[in-house]
């Protein structure tokens, strides 16, 4: 049982505030992804949980035990680093067994656990090699095996796949997800790659400027972004925004069209995902500017009243630059944001 609680954690580097009052609870055996652009504070938060960085204020609890005054080795965690941190002067076997040796486990127990995790990560034939003789993907596997061999309550991963090429990354993504589910550990996984986050996470915490903007399941984050930042960050291409002015009685004027919306009197931002618009007889008038065929779909960048939006259309449609399209947003997929607070409006 290892629930992680992050309570009121803040971190300042000199005058720069890297983290603002973070509160987050990660359930036992949950796979939590911290997602955000570089510099958003996600790695700092992970390192505070690991004990590699000290929070300026706040508490960290792991499995009901307060750990923020403990050294990393006493927190019951294992970590996988971005550059793998495979010790170059040790063989793969010695690397995986390093933590076990530090715990002074018996030789045959070390051997048993090294071989088991090595087999799990498909590197059992590499045990006598040195780090210099391994490929990036193999080093990655050693790093994961070394963490798993510790049989930790919590495993922390800092962009573990970011140094692999695209194909290998996809392969490792699925494998890592399977292995971690099997091992029943609680995991915190830091990434800037939204596809990785969406495909692996039980829950995603989207971070921006040292704050958690939204913590929810991947589909929730995608469908119901809590703030403009999340809407613009998740999804490729991201959500489209158009300014809307109230026309009274829950009606809104968007680019000359009248649409249903929430009851409010101040202007709002109208938002829709590119794939949630269809060609129809009535809707937003859009002039196609760039047409990019992507195989299954067409990605059309078009001009609506001076604002650029993107639409994903079926590739059966024949669209060329200069065409005027009529795009009908799917009503249940339309979201509204308050431009003052940038938060979602129900």
């Amino acid at each position: 049982m290892a629930e992680i609680q992050i309570k009121n954690v803040a971190k300042t580097f000199g005058t720069y505030q890297a983290l603002h009052d973070i509160n987050l609870t990660i359930a036992d055996q949950e796979f939590m992804v911290l997602l955000g652009a570089s510099g958003c504070g996600k790695t700092t938060l992970l390192r505070i949980v690991a004990g590699l960085e000290t929070a300026t204020t706040g508490e960290i609890w792991i499995g009901g035990r307060r750990v923020d005054h403990l050294a990393p080795k006493d927190r019951g965690i294992a970590m996988v680093f971005q550059n793998y941190a495979v010790f170059p002067h040790m063989t793969v076997f010695e690397n995986i067994g390093f933590g076990l040796r530090m715990q002074k486990l018996a030789n045959d127990e070390v051997k048993r656990r090294v071989e088991r995790t090595a087999t799990l990560m498909h590197i059992e034939q590499l045990l006598n090699r040195y780090s210099g003789e391994l490929s990036g993907g193999q080093r990655q596997r050693v790093a994961v095996a070394r963490a798993l061999a510790m049989e930790p309550d919590v495993i922390l991963m800092d962009e573990p796949l970011s140094n692999l090429d695209a194909l290998l990354r996809m392969e490792m993504r699925a494998e890592l997800k399977g292995v971690l589910a099997e091992s029943k550990t609680t995991a915190i996984y830091v990434t800037h790659d939204q596809v990785e986050a969406m495909s692996m996470a039980d829950r995603i915490s989207v971070m921006h400027q040292g704050k958690i903007v939204q913590a929810a399941s991947p589909i929730e984050v995608y469908r119901n972004p809590a703030a403009e930042f999340v809407a613009g960050f998740i999804g490729n291409p991201p959500m489209n925004f158009l300014s809307a002015t109230p026309a009274g009685n829950g009606k809104w004027t968007v680019a000359g069209e009248t649409l249903d919306g929430p009851n409010a009197t101040a202007p709002l931002q109208f938002a829709i995902r590119p794939e949630d618009m269809q060609l129809a007889d009535t809707g937003l008038k859009a002039t196609a500017k760039v047409v990019e065929p992507l195989g299954a779909h067409l990605l059309v960048t078009c001009d609506v009243n001076g604002t650029m939006i993107r639409a994903i259309l079926d590739s059966d449609h024949k669209v060329k630059p200069g065409d005027v399209l009529t795009l009908a947003p799917q009503p249940d997929r339309v979201r509204w944001f308050d431009p003052q607070t940038t938060l979602a409006v129900a």
Partner: peptide, 14 residues
């Protein structure tokens, strides 16, 4: 790389 040291810390070293 300091990562190597940090890795050692998480693996039970002071």
């Amino acid at each position: 790389p300091i990562e190597l040291e940090e890795a050692a810390w998480t693996l039970g070293c002071n």
